[in-house]
Write a protein that binds this DNA or RNA. Structure first.
Lengths: 220, 220
DNA sequence: TTGATAAACGGAACAATGTTCCGTATCTGG
DNA sequence: CCAGATACGGAACATTGTTCCGTTTATCAA
């Protein structure tokens, strides 16, 4: 097993919430057993490691590198992700999930307008960070075919809710389509990314401009 | 080890490669010798083989395949093209050369309007055939950085001449820019290529439309 | 607690590919 | 025709993605 787990603290990350999703009521199903704890831990470690390695080396980073970073053998990696592409897909989805999941959190922690602008900034970071992955999407590999739909089906509702709340509170106009905005900001952020002359500053300034535009004509 | 890469010797379509034409006729260029005949032959065979293999298998075809098709060993291939990318570049340039070189030939063999339309059709074939290579150009490999300029610097003058002659003969309008036309037809041909429902027919119909447009308003 | 066993693990081994090396064969100039 | 520069072929090496399988371990019931 993964003897190489000196840093066991990771376990404390309360991954428990996502457990017990299936068939808890039935008794002693010989055919199905609860997933092993180390397997779950490793799947998480692999996705996390892949995210880091992709960011450092690029999406073309060797699989061995990722396995090493995760403290796991390649065999383990391949049981979970039968293909390199599957790993890329996994990382992409996980990042989409994480970004989309912040929308409701921000909505409860801040007033609607503030929540909206904070999330849009977060979304910008997602776009810039995942530029490498995004280019992989257009590489012709059919494994990535489903990702655009996944992207939209997660982000559009999240932003729609934020927009509606902001509009209702009089902090944004009503006539803005969430998907239009996602695309516009996506284009904005994907050109002139973090490697620009002044980091992400330029992108953020443009984003602020757009956010002000959202407020324009709003009753005060 | 083989480091320096003299690589291209210009367009090289000229037949004779005698060294004596260089500068003054002083004796004893001890340092340079005429290239061996087999070397020249193999370079040609490699480019030709690569063209075929790229067309059949794709630009990602194994190098060994190309060497085999050319009837040479990989060592020979790598002496001429130190990198896989160099081979791709070589094929691309050679195809550009071949296509551009037909312009003057057509100009002498046909009346200006006919020459123009024939060459545009030929250009269409180039675009469709090289779709695979074109996508490789946008792969981030710096070896391909010079190709767009090469493309333009060969095609634009060729087409400019054809256009001017046709306009002078009253067989085309005067207000059409060669580069604009190259781009327009390039876009036309790159979508819906030869794999479409009716082969290249659709593309050719659109091309004819455009050629008619070139004639429109021309004095007769 | 303990033991049987399904599940998971690690990493060696395999296959495909780009690239390098070098002993041998061939061409060229004199 | 000879000597030496030049080029050749393909085995060998390096880097990946992927598979296999003997070993280890978490789980569960007794």
């Amino acid at each position: 097993m993964a003897k190489e787990t000196p840093t066991e603290k990771k376990v404390a990350t309360a991954t428990s919430t996502t457990r017990s999703t299936n068939t808890t009521a039935t008794k002693a199903p010989r055919t199905t057993r609860a997933p092993r704890a180390d397997a779950l831990r490793n799947e998480d470690a692999l996705l996390e490691a892949a995210k880091v390695v992709f960011a450092n080396i690029g999406v073309d980073a060797p699989v061995r590198e990722i396995a090493a970073q995760a403290g796991v053998g390649v065999g383990t990696l391949y049981r979970r992700f039968p293909t390199r592409s599957d790993l890329v897909v996994g990382v992409f989805k996980r990042e989409v999930d994480a970004c989309a999941a912040e929308a409701p959190k921000l909505a409860t922690a801040h007033p609607p307008g503030e929540a909206l602008s904070r999330w849009l900034k977060r979304y910008c970071q997602f776009i810039v960070t995942k530029k490498g992955l995004a280019s992989a999407l257009h590489s012709g590999d059919p494994a990535f075919d489903a990702l655009p739909a996944y992207f939209r089906s997660n982000f559009e509702p999240a932003l729609t809710d934020l927009l509606a709340a902001a509009a209702k509170a009089g902090e944004a106009r009503h006539d803005v389509d969430a998907y239009d905005l996602l695309r516009a900001i996506g284009n904005l952020a994907s050109t002139g990314g973090k490697d620009g002359p002044d980091g992400m500053e330029h992108t953020y300034r443009m984003l602020d401009l757009m956010i002000d535009g959202l407020r324009f004509g709003t009753p005060r």
